[in-house]
């Protein structure tokens, strides 16, 4: 469980998060949604210790962010880096191999090799294993990075808007893979999503944020309705239910 207690954050004079207290249960996909500037990405980067905590506390199971060692935390929690313009000329296999760095500090064992092979297989990357990242498409590069995170073998996986720049096929395949990681490998995934409909379809829990505060939290089937959309996004859009999923019509 990730527990967030009284977390506030400001950049200069600008308040980004206002006394956020919430819990993210173990297992399944939890989606953070909300309009631009709601503080979703900031909250995620605080959990991932990318930014130092200003006020409040965050615990990942028994580990306290900011107090526990980086190396230990890297064995329990991972965050998918955003795709950069600059990609080093690493092969997919070399990149995925770096996922084992928190365990082997650069000296891979047979067990590490096995984990890397498993990750390559799981994400259908065997054919690309010896190709360098700069020769891959955006979707393939994304998959290679997620395979690295998978090889890192952490209970908690954080992703910040991973669907950016992916077409619909790559996006669906990514979301299905994340579901599979939760079901087959008991991962807990926290994901910042831009599109509430994706959250509604794939997430087990939604945390809706606005102006640096959590507005509501719950199962998509129970909380996604016109009132929520009005409350969080300040627009009155109709919500319909298709195959059990509540969808917001644009």
């Amino acid at each position: 469980m990730i527990s967030i207690q009284g977390v506030s954050h400001a950049i200069g004079d600008k308040r980004i998060l206002n006394d956020v207290t919430t819990q993210i249960a173990q297992g399944g996909i939890t989606a953070l949604i909300g309009p631009n500037g709601a503080g979703k990405s900031t909250l995620l980067s605080l959990i991932a210790r990318l930014e130092p905590l200003q006020t409040g506390r965050i615990h990942v199971d028994a580990l306290e962010i900011g107090a526990c060692s980086d190396q230990v935390l890297a064995q329990h929690l991972s965050i998918l880096p955003q795709m950069a313009d600059h990609t080093p000329r690493l092969t997919v296999k070399e990149l995925v191999g770096f996922g084992r760095y928190p365990y082997n500090r650069g000296r891979p064992t047979a067990q590490d090799d096995a984990k890397v092979a498993q990750a390559l297989g799981m994400f259908g990357l065997n054919l690309f294993a010896d190709r360098t990242l700069d020769t891959l498409s955006g979707g393939q590069k994304q998959r290679a990075h997620i395979a690295m995170i998978f090889a890192q073998d952490t209970d908690y996986v954080l992703l910040d808007e991973p669907l950016n720049n992916l077409d619909i096929a790559a996006g669906r395949s990514l979301m299905k893979t994340l579901q599979r990681m939760c079901e087959d490998h008991r991962k807990t995934i926290v994901i910042v999503l831009h599109d509430i409909n994706v959250a509604s379809r794939y997430a087990d829990q939604i945390i809706a944020m606005r102006d640096g505060s959590v507005i509501t939290q719950g199962r998509p089937a129970e909380i996604v309705d016109s009132a929520l959309v009005q409350d969080v996004f300040e627009t009155d859009a109709p919500v319909v239910t298709v195959e059990g999923t509540n969808l917001v019509l644009m």
Binding site: V72, A74, Q82, A84, P88, F98, Q152
Partner: peptide, 21 residues
């Protein structure tokens, strides 16, 4: 420190994710 420099080359987020100082 070769591995550390290679990881730094992946960016700050990737470095922190892998527990690198």
């Amino acid at each position: 420190a070769a591995d550390q420099f290679a990881i730094v080359g992946l960016g700050r987020t990737a470095s922190i994710n892998l527990g690198l100082n």
